[in-house]
Design a protein around this nucleic acid. Sequence first.
DNA 1: GCCAACGTTGGC
DNA 2: GCCAACGTTGGC
Length: 156
Amino acid sequence: MSRHWLMKSEPDCFSIDDLAAAPNQTTYWDGVRNYQARNFMRDEMKRGDLVLFYHSNSEPPGIAGLAIVVRESYPDFTSFDPQHEHFDARTKQSNPTWMMVDIKFKRKFKRLLTLSELKEVAALDGMVLLQKGSRLSVQPVTESQFNCVLKLADRF
DNA sequence: GCCAACGTTGGC
DNA sequence: GCCAACGTTGGC
């Protein structure tokens, strides 16, 4: 059974267009330094799972498109590199703390589904993204929430 | 740029 | 194990 996810990225840093333009339209999802988000990637994300690609810290924030998990959890090598901004001195290659997955571009939505628009949709009540104070950068999405988002994306 | 909410750190 | 201080996220 495949699951559905939402992953946040700051488009100034890495946008849905960057994903579409990446080699093989694929990227490794490095830099997650939150245990809950890591656990989802490490324990639950499977090849073939679909991912809503969310633009955070942008104007306006919203869901920009769709991606798919193409490689399951493996160590986030940027955590071992002292030159890298995501370096973590406390982790060891022999026992990695931080993991990542690879995702591949599926499609960009015809329009950005803005956060403010999503908040108005009753069927999306309870979505992790919309919960007060929610900052989780990798989060599960239920099948009905996921299908609802796709319907919104195909409208207009 | 502000700041609320959250997660982490570290003294005790 | 508590909790204050701090750093980060991310909407606005």
